[in-house]
Design a protein around this nucleic acid. Structure first.
Lengths: 251, 251
DNA sequence: CGCAACCTTGATTCTGATCAATAAAGGTGG
DNA sequence: CCACCTTTATTGATCAGAATCAAGGTTGCG
């Protein structure tokens, strides 16, 4: 009983120490395994606002778990048309696209001062062979990213500007509340342009649509400070029910 | 030397027997490993044109490698707005999105009479722990799917109808030629509507754009029979160079 | 303080969606 | 094998949503 307690404390300590909770906690690792994992994870790295964690073309060696802060990932076009492929907050994993060719295919930029834990891919791969539950969890993470991207495709291919933006706000709200932040009162970390790129819209359209939501009394906008006044209104704009699974899936 | 030869023959036999070449060949498995893998892969399953290999909501137990034929995957909307998330031809893997929640999130429909090999996920997972090279290859497959989806996002978010369709034709052409088919003379397996859904366009727009390409003398269209007359013209429409990596990546 | 980045709002344009009519192809059953 | 019906594709006319162009305002950083 005492032993179990000790074990519990070790879990506690490791996970308090790193927001990788999301990566390792659901796996049900035992003490020895956790210590192993702890040895794999390189201590956290600070990235200043505006700096890049990695850039496209750089060799892929590690993935990164966001500890604190906020990132965007972008695919660069030669002609300047960038596409934001995702926003990442604490506990989310960056860099999965690099595995297949050993090279990063996007840029990961910090949108505020941030900290990440580096997860060297080779070590994780090796640990996966020893701890099947870790391996299984890793598969799930990758599959989740596939699902997320495919839902984004659905949005980009089928939805109108209002629906896209409503879904974006709902998604952000859910992810923030899962992390203990207010669900209906938050600061956007990204510019209108970045939102637009992510949603396949121009920044003017994002601005106008936010204004419209505001006029309807559904939200309150003060620059990047957003208050959601009538979440149900936003939900009814989208076909929220059918995306619930996907939106809630985010850890 | 004789032993090596025998080994070679076994590899040959197994891989002739199954278009999983793509899954197992690049891994460099040894004889014993290959035999193990062979035991995992369930013999092929026939799917008639129009039938589903799996549907969204069904429990996920296996992935599938296309042996012969052609599939599309769609995410269903409650209101009928489906989104085609991909087209799959021989050697490509279906079902990766199901891992994260143990449930399929899309429908996989055969666009012609097809055969697939079933890959039970649990067995693959288990085999992965024994054969690191298999595991590594599996990670690559998933990462590749992530990259593919993200490039699709770039396309849906940033490109105009002409660019999307040109890129679509180039991509199809490349994948067909990799399989030994003619690169510039092929039959579309999917309807205009399915192409449109995949590209975020309406079927009328697909039809009109194909007509325009045809009028320009770049392609020749006879119903679903496409001849590409001037591939360079299509390439110059897109920013082909920057997508080369992605497009060639397809196995 | 001054400049640069970011945001809002208006006017106009344009791409692609929608509506509609017709035609061609493919499948079914007699 | 043909007639019939359904599905699929083409093409035209019109419309709408978002892009583009443009001007002015705000914020925040050096």
């Amino acid at each position: 009983m005492i032993k179990l307690h000790q074990q519990g404390e070790i879990v506690q300590k490791l996970c308090d120490n790193c927001s990788l909770k999301i990566l390792c906690m659901p796996v049900g690792l035992y003490q020895q395994e956790l210590e192993d994992l702890n040895a794999i994870v390189r201590q956290s790295k600070r990235i200043r606002k505006g700096e890049c964690l990695f850039r496209h073309g750089e060799p892929f060696t590690s993935m990164y778990a966001v500890r604190t802060g906020f990132f965007k990932t972008t695919i660069a076009s030669l002609d300047g048309r960038d596409q934001v492929t995702g926003f990442f907050m604490s506990g989310e994993i960056l860099g999965l696209e690099g595995i297949c060719q050993g090279v990063h295919h996007c840029d990961a930029t910090a949108l505020e001062d941030s900290e990440v834990c580096e997860l060297p891919f080779e070590s994780l791969e090796e640990a996966g062979t020893r701890f099947p539950s870790l391996q299984a969890h890793f598969y799930k993470l990758m599959s989740q990213e596939i699902m997320r991207d495919q839902c984004q495709m659905l949005m980009l291919g089928n939805m109108r500007a209002e629906e896209r933006l409503a879904l974006f706000l709902i998604n952000l709200s859910l992810r923030l509340s899962k992390r203990g932040f207010a669900a209906n009162d938050f600061i956007l970390r990204m510019s209108r342009e970045a939102i637009g790129s992510f949603l396949g819209l121009k920044l003017e359209t994002v601005s106008r649509t936010l204004s419209r939501f505001s006029q309807e009394g559904w939200i309150q906008v003060e620059h990047r400070h957003i208050k959601i006044l009538r979440p149900e209104a936003l939900q009814s704009l989208t076909h929220y029910d059918q995306y619930k699974t996907v939106l809630n899936m985010e850890c």
